[in-house]
């Protein structure tokens, strides 16, 4: 892999819990991964596995009653003098000036619903220039020029006109492009894309993904791509993190994960992708059982009740840690623990 020695973002043992009257939900329960410059990292898992909460934890916009209870999120920023500084985002005040300066400037966010991600009460231009003027200290006219430039960059036709339109006047695809333009307006080093194509039709999906790839090539930013669509991962990503119930169960380069998955969950997940080469009239394999209720998280390895390789007395008692299983590849499963 062609990334530099130091990751731009390191997440270490991140735990984000939601404290509710009915109980504590361990939305993210010890996630660990690295994101490198110029890399596209896919975070995959079923809905409710903590992907989105991880993204929001990085931006420190987890809503109450959610809270980061443990872990580190290290952001490495390049300073104008060529030096890099390290900031642990979990130590910052989420409403403080430094965290706000990082949001939008160093880390951009786009997400699922292009319908409602823009406010219907202001023009697209208003909402984009707002971010530009906040972080780049440009004049109104300069910010507007930059907004138009960004809209052109993401492939919106007639950006001079579109900039004064409202989001409800754009199609879904254009809206998502405008969203990308807004997220990238201040040239962030990291772009978090939370299910960016889920709500779009397939053709538009492909266009948006191609756009993201092109922008990444041109600007060299790191992308954290959150998705449940393994096809998107295969197409876009350099590396993959697989999550289950708030924990990272496996991570590694995309080729290795797809061709040599080690964790039973990853294997099951890959088997459930429909394939054009599969025999007709054969039922698609599914993962047995269903995701446990958030308050009733299983003891030990969270996947053990659904696992085909469960080892009673071990998997339901102890929690496995991430272990190297191949070069750059790690899995958290007792099948690969050195002691076994």
């Amino acid at each position: 892999m062609e990334h530099g020695p130091e990751p731009i973002l390191s997440v270490r043992n991140l735990k984000t819990y939601f404290f509710q009257d009915e109980g504590i939900v361990h939305a993210v329960d010890g996630a660990t991964f690295d994101l490198y410059r110029g890399q596209t990292l896919g975070i995959v898992g079923e809905s409710g596995c903590g992907k989105s909460v991880t993204a929001r934890s990085v931006l420190r916009i987890v809503e109450r009653p959610g809270r980061i209870v443990e872990g580190e999120i290290i952001l490495r920023r390049e300073q104008p003098n060529g030096q890099t500084d390290e900031i642990d985002l979990t130590k910052l005040n989420p409403d403080g000036a430094l965290m706000r300066a990082i949001r939008g400037k160093d880390i951009g966010l786009i997400f699922q619903e292009p319908m409602t991600s823009f406010s219907a009460h202001y023009t697209i231009g208003n909402q984009i220039t707002e971010a530009i003027r906040l972080h780049l200290k440009l004049s109104k006219a300069e910010a507007r020029a930059r907004a138009i430039e960004m809209l052109r960059l993401v492939g919106i036709p007639k950006p001079e006109r579109r900039v004064d339109e409202y989001s409800f006047q754009l199609s879904g695809g254009l809206r998502q492009r405008a969203m990308i333009a807004m997220a990238l307006a201040c040239d962030p080093g990291i772009l978090i894309a939370d299910e960016p194509t889920t709500a779009l039709d397939v053709t538009t999906q492909a266009q948006i993904l191609a756009l993201l790839e092109r922008l990444q090539r041109e600007r060299g930013m790191a992308i954290m791509l959150i998705t449940h669509n393994l096809g998107v991962v295969a197409e876009m990503c350099d590396a993959v993190v697989v999550m289950y119930l708030g924990r990272v169960v496996e991570k590694g380069p995309v080729r290795q994960i797809f061709h040599n998955a080690r964790h039973p969950y990853t294997q099951a997940l890959l088997r459930s992708i429909p394939s054009i080469e599969a025999a007709p009239r054969v039922k698609l394999p599914t993962i047995t059982g269903s995701i446990p209720h958030p308050y009733k998280r299983p003891k030990g390895c969270p996947f053990h009740p659904r696992c085909a390789h469960v080892m009673p007395g071990l998997c339901d008692v102890q929690t496995p840690a991430l272990q190297p299983v191949a070069e750059h590849q790690e899995a958290s499963c007792f099948l690969y623990h050195p002691s076994q």
């Binding site: 009915e22 939900v25 939305a27 809905s47 409710g48 958030p294």
Partner: peptide, 9 residues
Amino acid sequence: MAIQTQQPD
């Protein structure tokens, strides 16, 4: 996350 207010039972 989908949170149900009732216990599973």
